[in-house]
Simulated scan of single mutants.
Amino acid sequence: MSTFASSPRFLRGVLWADAASCLATGTLQLSAIDALPRLFGLPQTLLLDSGIFLVAYALMAAWAATREVPPRGWVALFAIGNVAWAIGCAAVVALLQPTALGIAWIAAQAVAVLVLADLQWMGLRRGAATPRTALG
Results as ranks from 00 to 15, higher is better:
A91K: 09
A61E: 02
D18S: 15
P131G: 06
L30C: 08
A90M: 15
F4L: 14
R126S: 07
T130F: 04
A62P: 10
D34Y: 02
V93I: 14
R125P: 04
T25W: 15
L36S: 08
R132N: 04
P131T: 06
G73V: 02
R38M: 12
I80W: 12
W85G: 07
P43I: 02
V75R: 06
G13M: 06
Y57S: 01
L124N: 00
Q44H: 08
R12K: 13
T25V: 07
F40K: 00
L77P: 04
A76T: 08
C89S: 14
L48V: 08
A108P: 00
L59D: 03
R132E: 07
L28P: 03
G41V: 11
G13H: 10
R9S: 07
G88Q: 13
A94P: 00
L47K: 01
A90E: 08
A134R: 05
A64H: 12
G136V: 07
L95H: 01
A94N: 03
P71E: 09
F10I: 04
Q120A: 03
V69H: 00
V113N: 12
A86P: 04
I80Y: 11
A86Q: 02
L46T: 07
W85E: 09
V83A: 12
A35D: 08
P8G: 11
M1D: 11
L42D: 06
V92G: 00
R72A: 14
Y57P: 01
A107R: 05
S6Q: 15
I103D: 03
G13D: 10
L46M: 12
R67Q: 15
T130G: 06
T133M: 02
D49R: 09
V111N: 07
R12L: 04
M1P: 12
M1A: 14
M122F: 11
Y57K: 01
I33A: 11
M60F: 11
